[in-house]
Structures are given as C-alpha cells and as structure tokens.
Amino acid sequence: MLAHEDSSPESDSDFDASELTDKELQEAFSQGKLKPGLNVILEGKKKPFNDVSGLRQSLKDLMNELPWAERMDVTVDPVAETAGQNGQTAPNTPDINAEDDFQREMCFYRQAQAAVLYALPRLHQLKVATKRPDDYFAEMAKTDQHMQKIRQKLQIKQAAMEKSEKAKQLRALRKYGKKVQTEVLQKRQKEKSAMMTQIKKYQKGLSDKLDFLEGDQTQKKNKTGGSAAQKAKKGPSAKRRYKDQKFGFGGKKKGSKRNTKESYNDVSGFRASVAHGKGQRRPGKKGGKNANKRPGKKVRQKMKSKTR
C-alpha cells in the first residue's frame, strides 16, 4: 500500500492515494492534501472507519425527505418457523448457524415473507396497486427490427445445418451403394472365372459333370419363387384362383351321381313316371313316351326287306 508522506497524521488516515480515481486525486490536490515528496510503503492493513453518527444522520435525512411509498423500507423479524411434524409454530430463534447454508437461506426466506405480510396491507391503505393489470403491455428492450434480424440468422443457420446433414446422409448412401456394387461385381467375376475353369476341365476331359451349367437355372428358380413343391406350399397362383372363381373348382367327377344315405332316404322329389317311364296316358294320344317317334333308317330298311 502506497501513501504520500505528510506531516499531519490526519492525512494518512483520511485517504489512500493508490485507491483513488483521477477525479478524486484532482480534488485532493486542489484541497492541498497531496504534496510533493517521496512515497513510502506502509506495513499493515488499513483500519476500517465506521462513522456511526454520520450514517444515522443520513438515514434520518432520507426518512424525513421521502415518503414511505417511495422508499419501501421494511425492517421486521422473520416469520415464526413451524415445527413440522406436530404442526405447532416455534418461536423465533435468533441462534442461527451462519455457516449452515440451509438455515441461513430459510432465515432469509422467512424474513422476506414477514416483509411482504407487513408491506402489502400498508400499500393497500395507500391505494398503491400491487398486481399487474390484465392489459399490461411491456415494451421489449430490443426493437422488432433487431429481433427480425436474429430470427433470419437463426433460420439461415438451421437451413445450413439441415443442408449439411442431408449432404452427409447422401454421401453415406452413395458410399454404401458403391460398396454394394463393388461386392456384386466381384461376386459375378468370381462366378464367371469358376465357370470358365469348369468348362476348360470338361473340354480337356478332366470332368464329365455339367452341374455348373445349372447355376443360372437355380438362380432363376430362387427369383421366381423356388421349385414346384415350394409353390404348392404357397398355394395356387392368381391366374388359377381367377379361373376357379369363373369356371368352378373342378374336383371329382366319377361317382358324383351315386346315391348316399341322405339321398336314399329323401323321397320328396321321387316321381314314378319319370323314374320308370310309366304313367297314365293322356286322352287322344297313342302309345307312351316315344309313340310318335319315327324309326331309324336301318330299322326301316330291315322292315322293307322283310316285306319282300
């Protein structure tokens, strides 16, 4: 701590030159408190100065000059703390451990609560509004033009991020597609080289098997749905189902008109004339069912030959 030498001890205790601003230094120089000389280092801390009488006078001046609605100063004790479990209120306990954060904050909270309970009725007596009206309009600190610029910047930033993410996904898809295409080409090249090797062996007479030629057919079967057994498991095709719906389902034809136990016992539709070709003849007609039917050509020729 630096200080200027002065013959009077009052100058050492009144001010500290190292902590003064330029304006305060100019005022001190004009008052004659600063004098030329050597600076010396003072050991030890500066003693605090507590002007109690001056502070009380300042407080009294403030209380006398301004009304309470302008000052809003409230000095009250904290609200009585509840015991908790038994529901009874405990008296104010001034013995609070300042090092305990929870106790200290609870004391502040209860003191603020007591100040509100004291100040609100007094404000109502003075007809001072304590609630914000419903149509209250608070103008923003920033203008609409400034907020519009911020919104545009945020939109541009979001669009750039979306574009970057989309480009990243496209690069990943392109890379994956290229990898798959390379694998397919390598597989085809491998199959082709294996087939050429088998063909060369067959031409030289080293092998008499042509199973390698069925590879394409096997692949076609796999693409079209497999063998007939696999198709049978899947059921008939769409064409077969359409034809069954249009023309019928086929089925067993032989023995379809044979009697069953139910048809044998059912005689509701039985007609003797139809079953045996017999019945009562109608008046004015001769013969039975085929009475007026002309004989065939061979029968007529035989009849002619007999008459001769």
Score class of each variant (00 low, 15 high):
residue 101 D to V: 12
residue 101 D to C: 08
residue 101 D to Q: 10
residue 102 F to N: 11
residue 102 F to K: 15
residue 102 F to D: 13
residue 103 Q to V: 05
residue 103 Q to P: 01
residue 104 R to H: 04
residue 105 E to Y: 15
residue 105 E to I: 15
residue 106 M to Q: 12
residue 106 M to H: 01
residue 107 C to G: 11
residue 108 F to V: 11
residue 109 Y to W: 09
residue 109 Y to F: 11
residue 111 Q to P: 04
residue 112 A to N: 05
residue 112 A to K: 05
residue 112 A to C: 03
residue 113 Q to S: 09
residue 113 Q to N: 09
residue 113 Q to I: 09
residue 113 Q to M: 11
residue 113 Q to R: 14
residue 113 Q to F: 06
residue 116 V to P: 00
residue 117 L to N: 06
residue 118 Y to V: 12
residue 120 L to N: 02
residue 121 P to R: 00
residue 122 R to D: 01
residue 122 R to V: 02
residue 123 L to W: 00
residue 124 H to A: 05
residue 124 H to W: 07
residue 125 Q to C: 05
residue 125 Q to L: 08
residue 126 L to K: 11
residue 127 K to A: 06
residue 127 K to F: 06
residue 128 V to I: 15
residue 128 V to D: 00
residue 129 A to V: 02
residue 129 A to E: 02
residue 129 A to I: 00
residue 130 T to L: 01
residue 131 K to R: 02
residue 132 R to M: 03
residue 132 R to H: 03
residue 135 D to E: 01
residue 135 D to A: 02
residue 135 D to F: 01
residue 137 F to R: 10
residue 138 A to L: 15
residue 138 A to F: 15
residue 139 E to L: 06
residue 140 M to Q: 12
residue 140 M to V: 03
residue 141 A to G: 09
residue 141 A to Q: 12
residue 141 A to Y: 09
residue 142 K to P: 04
residue 142 K to S: 13
residue 143 T to H: 02
residue 143 T to I: 01
residue 143 T to R: 02
residue 144 D to P: 03
residue 145 Q to T: 07
residue 145 Q to V: 06
residue 146 H to C: 04
residue 146 H to A: 13
residue 147 M to L: 14
residue 147 M to N: 07
residue 147 M to W: 08
residue 148 Q to L: 11
residue 148 Q to M: 11
residue 149 K to E: 08
residue 150 I to M: 12
residue 151 R to S: 12
residue 151 R to H: 09
residue 152 Q to E: 15
residue 152 Q to S: 09
residue 153 K to L: 14
residue 153 K to E: 15
residue 154 L to H: 12
residue 155 Q to S: 14
residue 159 A to S: 04
residue 159 A to M: 02
residue 160 A to P: 03
residue 160 A to L: 14
residue 160 A to Y: 06
residue 161 M to Y: 10
residue 162 E to Y: 09
residue 163 K to H: 11
residue 163 K to M: 10
residue 163 K to D: 13
residue 164 S to T: 12
residue 164 S to L: 13
residue 164 S to V: 07
residue 165 E to Y: 07
residue 165 E to C: 05
residue 165 E to L: 14
residue 166 K to P: 04
residue 166 K to L: 14
residue 167 A to I: 10
residue 167 A to M: 11
residue 167 A to R: 13
residue 168 K to I: 08
residue 168 K to N: 07
residue 168 K to A: 14
residue 168 K to Y: 10
residue 169 Q to M: 10
residue 169 Q to G: 04
residue 169 Q to E: 13
residue 170 L to K: 07
residue 173 L to Q: 14
residue 173 L to F: 06
residue 174 R to W: 06
residue 174 R to V: 08
residue 175 K to D: 08
residue 175 K to V: 03
residue 175 K to M: 04
residue 176 Y to G: 07
residue 177 G to N: 15
residue 178 K to A: 12
residue 179 K to M: 13
residue 179 K to V: 07
residue 180 V to N: 07
residue 180 V to C: 08
residue 180 V to M: 14
residue 180 V to P: 03
residue 181 Q to C: 06
residue 182 T to W: 04
residue 182 T to D: 13
residue 182 T to V: 13
residue 183 E to S: 12
residue 183 E to Q: 10
residue 183 E to V: 05
residue 183 E to I: 07
residue 184 V to Y: 09
residue 185 L to M: 04
residue 185 L to C: 07
residue 186 Q to L: 13
residue 186 Q to W: 04
residue 188 R to W: 05
residue 189 Q to W: 02
residue 190 K to F: 05
